[in-house]
């Protein structure tokens, strides 16, 4: 047994070293910086201070933080609503399955930044959508689709939808069809079978999808940068600006730590609420 554990560690060591060097140490470093004193222009004085956190809790930054969480949450919910039927369809698409999966993954080959430019062309005042609607006579003046929370949500949903589709697809694909037959055999209509059997049994996929969509969505800054021209802010923008423009590393670090704590906390609460006994709400 001891030998097995030893072997496991020796095989894991490359990834453990990687994680230690590029995740654990930087996070600890950020945590340390957040409590140092700012001497201006990126200066760090190793003297304990909570100044950065006081600033971070000021109404302006707090509002951006909540706003980011809210938008990402909404985007995650929308992704889930779109992704589940989509993944379900792919899982049952027979010979088209591989092609459809490939199409889901194609966007990964292009940077999100480039793909968001495409949305500028679609959304702006003289863009494809406005032009089309005006030509059809549905609207007389262009809608201001850009520079709005609407554009942010579109960007987030668009950018992170594949992250939701893939894990859900995997869990639906793995679902043993005989469970569904057993359910129908016991008198459950297709709708009830879906609610009582398919949904709970594919829940791990939903959970994974929610987490890997929500976490990157909440900290992304290119979406707001490009689709609102920096008019609307997510916490990612604020952190980036704190580090690169204001040169206030303490504030940037404090916001990063707060964001991390909030995201972890929401995941823990979410998992607590949805796993184990409490998942009975589905039945």
């Amino acid at each position: 047994m001891d030998r097995m554990i030893k072997n496991a560690y020796s095989m894991l060591s490359p990834s453990l070293i990687w994680l230690l060097l590029f995740l654990v140490i930087p996070v600890i470093y950020i945590g340390v910086i957040s409590f140092t004193t700012n001497t201006g222009f990126g200066g760090i004085l190793y003297e304990f201070s909570t100044e950065a956190y006081t600033a971070a809790f000021s109404s302006l930054y707090a509002k951006v933080l909540w706003q980011s969480l809210g938008w990402s949450l909404l985007a995650t919910v929308l992704c889930l609503v779109i992704a589940y039927p989509f993944a379900y369809y792919i899982a049952h698409a027979g010979k088209w399955k591989n092609l459809l999966l490939l199409l889901v993954m194609v966007p990964f080959w292009t940077n999100l930044l480039i793909r968001l430019y495409a949305w500028i062309i679609l959304l702006n005042n003289h863009g494809v959508i406005n032009n089309l609607l005006m030509k059809l006579g549905i609207i007389s003046e262009p809608l201001s689709l850009m520079y709005s929370p609407f554009a942010v949500i579109i960007g987030l949903v668009y950018g992170f939808l594949p992250f939701m589709i893939l894990p859900i697809y995997a869990s639906i694909e793995q679902l043993d069809r005989s469970y569904l037959e057993a359910s129908e055999d016991l008198g459950a209509s297709p709708v009830k079978t879906f609610l009582y059997v398919t949904l709970p049994l594919t829940f791990p996929g939903i959970l994974a999808g929610i987490i890997i969509t929500f976490v990157p969505a909440v900290s992304v800054f290119v979406v707001t940068d490009l689709l609102t021209g920096g008019k609307l802010l997510m916490v990612g923008n604020v952190i980036k600006d704190a580090f690169l423009i204001e040169m206030n590393w303490q504030l940037g670090s404090a916001l990063s730590i707060l964001l991390m704590v909030l995201v972890l906390l929401s995941i823990v609460i979410f998992m607590k609420f949805t796993s184990g006994k409490d998942r009975k709400f589905l039945i």
Partner: peptide, 16 residues
Amino acid sequence: PYHREVNTVFQSYSLF
């Protein structure tokens, strides 16, 4: 199937 008065014991049991 869900309207038939039959029930099945499956080969792999298929317990939920």
